[in-house]
Design a protein around this nucleic acid. Structure first.
Lengths: 231, 231
DNA sequence: AAGATAAGGTGTAATTTTTACACTAAGTAA
DNA sequence: TTACTTAGTGTAAAAATTACACCTTATCTT
């Protein structure tokens, strides 16, 4: 039983792959669609770009409208333009990604009724996604993995104060690979952009770990050098 | 004296940044525009995507029509979507890049009259370009530079048989940086994907250098490992 | 309060990779 | 034959990476 849908002209859309880290799991932000096609499905937050807004602005607006989240730094990572990727006509989508701290404060609540709800969902349990969203997600995940290797982006996913074990667990989740504890710590600390705090973890039923904070100033120094290649 | 131009609806376009290496200089492929706006200007080869073709197909077609070049592997690298980037209306452009051997055999000859001509132009002498083409080029160049660090793409720019000095000169042109001859050779040879030939350079008025060929099978092995990160 | 449990935290030696550095060899041209 | 130009080569020091295991500290249980 298929619904008959109107055809539309060429349009641009935005899809967002927003990463978060919660309960030692890597998650992305999904919505439940409230529109055909794929009404009721879990999908990446995405919608159509207006004629009078830049694609970067559109990405921000669409994410906000569909999830209630604002003011995060999104970055474009790929454009998907197969002819038949949308059943209703030609839709080229520009995919954006961002990393954010999952925070109980930040309520997820769509402000349009294009989405029924928005929620965090583990990347390992995505199941079937509509359109080419599986491919979009996979491309974004690869981008994240690669970028982790040359930019210390992990801190955007962690709470402001974190333990080295949390940091390591996050790296392991993104890279899908076990890392050596001593070497990991040695390396991370050697960069010099982690500030050790006079505080310890709370609420754990074992020896509490020291907390660290990310020092953006020192990070920037290292990031500047990042492009340099040996001569 | 401004020409009055028709406004058009939202459209997608493709722009191409095609790199080549000639006379020890890094060059890109430009066309002379034969259409308003910017008629007569040097510009990146670019045009509008048709409704019934994927963006990848469009990129190939457009490059062919504007320059006569075919069958090169292009890859998307960024999408430019500012509202006012095109004077006639909303045009979002998807930028592609490729590396090719500049070859006297391959004639540059537009097959439409959208372009008056096509030619190689040194990246260091680009001057003013129309639209946001300067930004498009710069982004593509950065992408090239970065990619050189993790994929042996230099061989796509060199003739099939090349000397180590040519290879080094190319690296230096892309990275804009002098490299140490002994260390460069040691490193390149250590990868094991360069095959030393029983041939020497010809036509030089000094000691001829050995020629090498790139061994794609071994390259693939190394490229497979490329994503691995220390554990 | 003693013991069990669970994660926190630490150092070293071997190996590999990177860096800095300068002269002789070979071919061509005058 | 000599001058010129680029080809081609090795080594030692420094830095980065890897592999690897045990004691410490806090909490919870009995």
């Amino acid at each position: 039983m298929e619904t008959i849908l109107p055809k539309f002209d060429s349009v641009f859309s935005i899809d967002c792959v927003i990463f978060g880290f919660q309960a030692n799991e890597l998650k992305i932000l999904l919505i439940e669609r409230n529109e055909e096609p794929f009404k009721g499905w879990r999908a990446l937050p995405g919608y159509i770009v207006k004629k009078d807004e830049s694609i970067d602005d559109a990405a921000e607006r669409i994410l906000y409208e569909l999830t209630g989240l604002r003011d995060l730094h999104m970055e474009q990572f790929h454009t998907f333009g197969d002819v038949d990727r949308h059943p209703q006509g030609r839709v080229i989508t520009i995919a954006y990604y961002a990393l954010i701290r999952i925070d109980v404060q930040k309520e997820l609540k769509p402000v349009t009724n294009i989405a029924k709800s928005a929620f965090w969902y583990p990347v390992n349990e995505l199941g079937k996604l509509p359109f080419d969203h599986a491919k979009v997600f996979e491309t974004g995940f690869q981008k994240l993995r690669r970028r982790l290797g040359y930019q210390p982006i992990a801190f955007e996913l962690l709470p402001e104060k974190f333990t080295l074990t949390q940091l390591q667990t996050l790296y392991e989740a993104i890279l899908n690979k076990k890392l050596d504890k001593r070497n990991f710590r040695k390396k991370m600390l050697s960069y010099g952009f982690l500030k050790e705090l006079d505080e310890k973890q709370k609420g754990v039923s074992y020896r509490a770990a020291k907390l660290y904070r990310f020092d953006r100033r020192k990070y920037n120094k290292i990031f500047q050098n990042e492009l340099s290649i040996n001569g």
